[in-house]
Simulated scan of single mutants.
Amino acid sequence: MKIIDAHIHFDQYEKDKRDVILQEMNAAGIDYIISVSTNLESSIKNLALSKDDRRIKAAFGFHPEPPLPEKAVIDQLIQWIKENQGNMIAIGEVGLPYYARQASRSEMFPYESYVEILERFVTLAAELHKPIILHAVYDDAPVVCDLLEKHKIASAHFHWFKGDKQTMKRMIQNGYFISVTPDVIYEREIQELVKEYPLELMMVETDGPWPFEGPFSGQSTHPKMIQPSISKISELKNIAVKEVSEILYENTSQFYTL
């Protein structure tokens, strides 16, 4: 099967592990990896990596889970993205800080400031005519849908999505894509999501170097972990592995114009 890892933080791997992945990609059927960024430094690193190997496709953005940055930091990143837009495949990873907010449990958490930052990136995606890669789960997802609809963004990719059925239905109606990680092998919540969401709006990812459990426990996250993910999706959808693989590949290829 031919595979595209639709969401990986390739810049966060140590060089020796990056080298191993690049050496093993062809044998594992991995044609491309979409390497998302978390800030300006990460974006610069992903740009360099993508120039070194054409199979690495860079996305530039600001991950929402770290502490709120100063406005000047976002200004600088957005300016840099505009200057380097020809070298990126998408805006991302951007979104809202669900996990940081849950950990904080403070009424003073600056949620609206994060929403304002996200809207700047949504606006930028519209301005540059680029897809947007989103970190938006549970009750953050409807807020993100509001922004996407407000700015008429059609090319939206919700990575490792988790949320309620009402939001899922809204996302399907809008043609938004999701991507599935290797935890589909052992997480009931993700398995139920795969059953509900149309295969035609689905991709596969690792979110590496994030570690996984179950059969992947103790292993360094590698794009080849997508192979058993596809087999599980095939089982859940009751569609042949070959057909599932081809549809997922075509979905990602068309979405990112590969």
Rank of each mutant, 00 (worst) to 15 (best):
M203G: 09
S155L: 14
I226T: 03
S217Q: 08
K242Y: 05
L248C: 06
F161C: 08
S220H: 02
I239N: 08
N251D: 12
D164W: 07
L148V: 08
S231P: 00
K150Q: 15
N174P: 00
E243A: 05
G214S: 15
M168A: 13
M202A: 08
G214F: 10
G175E: 01
L236T: 06
Q219A: 10
Q219S: 08
D207S: 11
T181A: 10
Y176C: 04
I226Q: 01
E246P: 00
K162D: 03
I185W: 02
S179M: 06
W160S: 14
F161G: 07
H157R: 04
Y176F: 15
S179P: 02
Q254P: 00
E243P: 00
I172T: 04
V184K: 01
T221A: 08
P223K: 02
S155F: 04
E200S: 15
S220N: 06
V194G: 09
Y197L: 15
K152C: 04
I178W: 02
P198M: 11
I185E: 07
K232N: 06
I247D: 00
S234Q: 07
G218C: 11
F158T: 05
G163W: 03
S217D: 08
I233P: 03
S234R: 09
Q254H: 12
N251I: 12
Q191H: 07
K242D: 14
